[in-house]
């Protein structure tokens, strides 16, 4: 136990924790949306994220920013970021929709038991990860730093970089946009209706299958944003990069209350911060265990999560 490390670097650990937690939160949204509507843990969601990290990097490489490229100036940088963002979001959403259409919808039509859905989900996850693994020869895929890290200001002795501000800012914007969409728009009302009671919603004229498709698209878009932020932060991806982060994002979703959008944000940020404190306290090799331990403890004492479970109850 290293309390000096924890308290000495408390502000810095908090800031980097929030930065990582933001990425967890964006992925957790996908789990939460699908779970809220279908009561299904979409194991393939971690691969939806993985596809996003790859496609964003491929876009940058196609634009000429490969391993040895110098960091671009502001104009081209913004262009590259937007191109990467659009491609990653589109690719992730497309992957999520494909999984829904190919794997889950046929099962729903056959009224398969919940176990069948879970088994299919894990199968889909491995098919996606393995096809990228075989395609990339299981090698890590790197990228030169697009945005050189620069300290913008210091807060209680912790340096806050431009990257961290960008990641947190984008996450908050996406979060607010999604929250408003689900709570205010007509389509969002459909999502909440199906989440509350699918059969009644169908009687009221809500097209269930369209709502489910929409939910997968939204989850995919959020995962795509998360993937871009991950690329900016780590400049690296690999075919199995989604697995651990998917597990943590799911833990974050349960932590905040699965099926609850704001809960996903809270859970993600909380997990990122707690994880960093734990690595300060016990040493870096314990970092990845934190989420899992937290998940088990939470399931023992408060299985509904911090903010409660239901997507249907989330009102403006």
């Amino acid at each position: 136990m290293n309390f000096d490390e924890l308290f000495g670097n408390f502000p810095a650990l908090t800031i980097t924790g929030l930065e990582q937690g933001a990425i967890y939160a964006l992925i957790a949204l996908g789990y939460t949306l699908v779970y809220g509507v279908l009561r299904l843990i979409n194991f393939a969601h971690s691969e939806v994220f993985m596809v996003g990290t790859f496609t964003a990097m491929w876009t940058w490489q196609a634009l000429g920013y490969d391993q040895n490229a110098a960091a671009p100036s502001l104009g081209p940088l913004i262009l590259a970021l937007i191109a990467g963002l659009v491609v990653a979001m589109a690719a992730s959403a497309l992957t999520a929709v494909t999984v829904e259409l190919v794997a889950y919808r046929p099962l729903r039509r056959r009224n398969a038991p919940p176990l069948a859905f879970l088994i299919t989900a894990i199968g889909a996850s491995f098919v996606l990860a393995e096809s990228f693994g075989i395609g990339t020869r299981r090698a890590p895929f790197g990228q030169a730093d697009l945005i050189p890290s620069k300290t913008v200001f210091t807060l209680f002795g912790a340096e806050v970089t431009n990257k961290q501000l960008l990641i947190l800012g984008v996450t908050l914007v996406m979060m607010v946009a999604l929250d408003q969409f689900v709570n205010r728009s007509r389509l969002g009302r459909g999502i909440r209706a199906v989440a509350q009671d699918a059969d009644t919603a169908a009687l009221m004229g809500v097209n269930k299958n369209r709502v489910i498709l929409l939910v997968f698209v939204l989850g995919g878009l959020m995962a795509g944003v998360g993937a871009l932020l991950w690329d900016i932060r780590f400049n690296y991806t690999k075919f199995n990069v989604g697995f651990l982060i998917g597990l943590k994002a799911f833990a974050a979703a349960v932590l905040g209350g699965i099926g609850n959008l704001r809960g996903a944000l809270l859970g993600g940020l909380l997990l990122g911060v707690v994880e960093n404190y734990a690595s300060g306290l016990f040493g870096g090799e314990w970092k990845d265990f934190t989420g899992f331990v937290l998940l088990i403890v939470l399931l023992m004492f408060r299985p509904t999560g911090l903010l409660g479970e239901s997507l249907g109850r989330a009102r403006a």
Binding site: A103, L107, I119, T120, G123, A124, F126, V127, S131, I134
Partner: peptide, 12 residues
């Protein structure tokens, strides 16, 4: 890869 596909196809 193959057995992942097999699982999906079998479940359907």
């Amino acid at each position: 890869l193959v057995f992942g596909l097999v699982v999906i196809v079998m479940m359907i």
